[in-house]
Design a protein around this nucleic acid. Structure first.
Length: 593
RNA sequence: GCGCCCGUAGCUCAGCUGGAUAGAGCGACGGCCUCCGGAGCCGUAGGUCGCAGGUUCGAAUCCUGCCGGGCGCGCCA
């Protein structure tokens, strides 16, 4: 039971003893953490909620409730405030009990493995396999992966899926461009011009020359496969799969659009639509009819007048296939520029008699790439894209740590809601690569680890279980406040997962970091160190004077913070380093004005 | 024109299923290095929550209209 639930129970029984029991269930009321600490640990609006129902002024009800709470073993004190709020202060033992529960759960704190059991297919990234992973699709990858982690924390069985658009115009153009590069010609008009195309051609000439002389279809297949896999050791063409892996994004399933056609899934699903009267031929093409009443959509082409299938045709087959695979929910992460697509898919599912309500689109606003404040028009075909590898390499190098770039990039994108546009400045990203707040948060974790290491070196163990009564030594207001915050974490995870909003986790862990670092510095000023300092240990018979019980309680508390810290960082896929060494400052690299 | 997203401190953004005196980071200014990690800590300044109505005990939060920005409304994906 969560802390808020326990307090809610205490309030309910107190109201019951006031003779208000029958009304309590009939109105909705909250137990929430007030914004201001002076208003207590928790506050309830129950008196205001009951006022109308009972026909008494809220403050009068509140007064009575406060009296009834006097005998509660969870509430230390209660007072009426403002229009009828009841502010509650909890007994330290309540927080101590939470800490004990956290230490029992360890890094699983906040996870609810049995909560839903839903089988979820989460499709994300699905960028055309004709170029490297850009920072723009990096947002998709990072958001999708973080949502997957959140859903898993709530007991969903998540399949991470990448839909590979491995047929159609783009792939044909890509193949033509590779072929042109191999022949030393310029790429076609609307072909791909990036440096990786030439590298790909050179590589194929080396390892698979025959395919360059074959048909475009075969070349396209090999080119796409190489894009996905990458060229070993290449920084120009590291491969979509390895790039994403460096971002800590992995997929369970790579679905092929081409395979849907080859196996007849597209034909089959189109026949079903036709049989249901959902297709109409007009203007020489075949259209999916917008259903009656769906004012916000039009007829959509499934087969072009030249007889080739439009992408939408394979999409319909693809979603039908996912449903057939037995998922309870189909989530897809899309950039805002694709939002028109959502209704279309839902309509087509409904037309096929499939449960369209299982389909859920997660939209995020677009990333604008700028350079020194100027907008950069980047296009995969023009080859002037900013790749996640470039950015990660840069930050890894500056921080002197592999993975720092992935941490920074993940934190950057996850520290704002998906609903806002983000600007990503190429120059700023490189220049200020160590400015990312992720390093501040990670530093806090490293500090916690450092204290535990120090304790160990002094022969003091950080206990995962404290004997009865030992928690009482943990009495510093900051310590209890942080325990409260740790107790909040499961609620934060639940909410973040329900709303598919991983940024809530990022804000939470930032607050945790701030709270701890602030506390830690304050202790210094209070001359109340957690561990016996060198000077103390130099004194004769210091052990007798040192309060080891308090130290143990605090170390247990630190262990709990570290567990939650690590759990939170893991939910957003950011590493929790045990040490962080500041990279050597480049003295000669001061900016010249 | 229609649809979706956004408009909150100088900048970047939280808060939006209604609650009390609206928060954080960066930037600015001023402080704090005797032992557990200074990638740190404390403080100050800074806000008509785009505008106007409405709903109610109470609105940044819900509703309507308007203004401003982003995206979409292809036989492109």
């Amino acid at each position: 039971m969560s802390l808020a639930e326990r307090v809610r129970d205490a309030l309910t029984s107190a109201l019951d003893s006031c003779g208000l029991g029958e009304h309590v269930g009939a109105v909705s009321w909250t137990v929430e953490r007030p914004k201001r600490a002076e208003h207590g640990d928790l506050a309830t609006n129950v008196a205001m909620a009951l006022a109308k129902k009972v026909g008494r002024p809220p403050r009068a009800i509140a007064e009575e409730l406060v009296k009834a709470l006097a005998s509660s073993d969870a509430v230390a004190s209660a007072e009426v405030a403002g229009p009828g709020f009841v502010n509650l202060r909890l007994r330290p033992a309540v927080f101590h009990a939470e800490l004990a529960a956290i230490l029992r759960a360890g890094r699983a704190w906040g996870r609810a493995p049995a909560a839903t059991g839903e089988r979820v297919d989460l499709e994300f990234v699905s960028a055309n396999p004709t170029g490297p992973v850009t920072v723009a699709s990096g947002r998709n990858a990072i958001l999708g992966d973080a949502v997957a982690r959140l859903l898993e924390a709530r007991g969903c069985h998540v399949t991470r899926e990448y839909y590979v658009n491995d047929r159609g115009n783009q792939v044909r153009r890509f193949a033509e461009s590779v072929k042109a590069a191999a022949d030393g010609r310029e790429p076609p008009e609307d072909g791909y011009k990036g440096a990786y195309v030439a590298e790909l051609a050179a590589w194929l000439r080396q390892v698979e020359p025959a395919v360059l002389g074959g048909d475009l279809e075969g070349l396209g297949r090999v080119a796409v496969a190489t894009m996905l896999r990458g060229i070993p050791g290449s920084r120009t063409l590291p491969g979509i799969r390895p790039s994403l892996a460096d971002l800590r994004v992995r997929f369970d399933v790579w679905s092929s659009e081409e395979a849907l056609h080859r196996w007849g899934a597209v034909d089959a699903v189109m026949r079903r639509l036709d049989a249901g009267g959902h297709l109409v031929r007009k203007e020489g093409a075949l259209f999916f009819k917008a259903p009656e009443g769906a004012t916000d959509d039009k007829d959509r082409v499934v087969q072009k007048s030249d007889g080739t299938w439009a992408y939408f045709a394979s999409d319909v087959a693809y979603f039908a296939d996912k449903i057939a695979r037995g998922y309870d929910r189909l989530v897809i992460v899309l950039g805002a520029d694709h939002h028109g697509y959502v209704t279309r898919v839902r309509n087509s599912m409904a037309a096929l008699g499939l449960p369209a309500e299982r389909f859920e689109a997660l939209l995020y606003q677009l990333v604008f790439i700028t350079k020194g404040g100027q907008a950069v028009k980047s296009s995969k075909r023009a080859g002037n894209v900013l790749t996640v590898d470039e950015v990660m390499d840069e930050i890894d190098e500056a921080a002197g740590r592999k993975g720092a770039g992935a941490d920074a990039l993940r934190f950057f994108f996850l520290s704002r809601s998906a609903n806002v546009n983000v600007e990503f400045d190429m120059e700023l990203a490189k220049k200020n690569s160590l400015d990312n707040p992720v390093f501040y948060v990670q530093y806090g974790h490293a500090r916690l680890c450092s204290i535990l290491r120090k304790a160990e070196s002094l022969g003091i163990e950080a206990p995962r279980h404290l004997p009865e009564g030992a928690w009482a030594k943990l009495a510093h207001p900051d310590e209890l406040a942080m325990a409260h915050k740790l107790a909040d974490f499961p609620g934060v995870v639940t909410e973040a997962a329900a709303l598919r909003e991983p940024h809530r986790i990022v804000f939470y862990v930032q607050e945790l970091a701030r709270d701890f670092q602030s506390y830690f510095t304050r202790l210094k000023g209070e001359r109340d160190p957690i561990l016996p300092p060198d000077s103390t240990r130099a004194e004769e018979g210091w052990e007798a004077r040192w309060d080891l019980g308090k130290t143990r309680a605090r170390l247990a508390w630190i262990l709990a913070i570290r567990d939650v810290y690590a759990a939170a960082l893991d939910l957003v896929g950011v590493s929790a380093p045990e040490r962080m060494d500041r990279p050597p400052a480049e003295g000669d690299d001061t900016p010249d004005e």
